[in-house]
């Protein structure tokens, strides 16, 4: 089985220098104190493994970059350290279908 990540290793991954989101390398819990680009941040919510958080403040209409490439557009203002997912980030191509909520199961595209 895999060994735990050493405490010195980053808990958030930056995939490319120009990205404005970070990836949780391990499950993170609400209230956890993190450092994002040298600034202290306290997580307002749980962040599961692999989920994205904002690296800096984003405004509605801003593009999100991961791997140095655009992965969609934010639909609301997002604070640094807040989760970026289907509730505030949409595709520029094709809507995303989820089972999470029948009422909002078809999340509209910006196109």
């Amino acid at each position: 089985m895999s060994t735990p990540i050493p405490p010195s290793a980053p808990r958030l991954l930056l995939m490319a220098p120009e990205d404005n989101c970070l990836i949780a390398r391990v499950p993170l819990v609400a209230g956890e104190a993190l450092e994002i680009d040298g600034a202290a941040a306290v997580l307002a919510e749980d962040i599961p493994l692999g989920y994205k958080v904002a690296r800096r403040a984003l405004k509605a209409g801003d593009k999100v970059l991961r791997y140095g490439a655009i992965i969609g557009t934010v639909t609301a203002d997002v604070a640094p350290g807040a989760m970026l997912h289907t509730h505030n980030l949409v595709s520029d191509y094709i809507p995303t279908y989820t089972l999470a909520s029948d009422a909002h199961s078809f999340i509209g595209s910006t196109h």
Binding site: I23, L49, I71, S91, Y93, P95, T96, T98, A100
Partner: peptide, 19 residues
């Protein structure tokens, strides 16, 4: 009306087709 994107992809932290 659907991308190549299943609900489990979103549960796993992927948000959009391009991601």
């Amino acid at each position: 009306g659907h991308g190549s994107f299943a609900p489990g992809n979103a549960d796993g932290g992927l948000t959009t087709q391009e991601e």
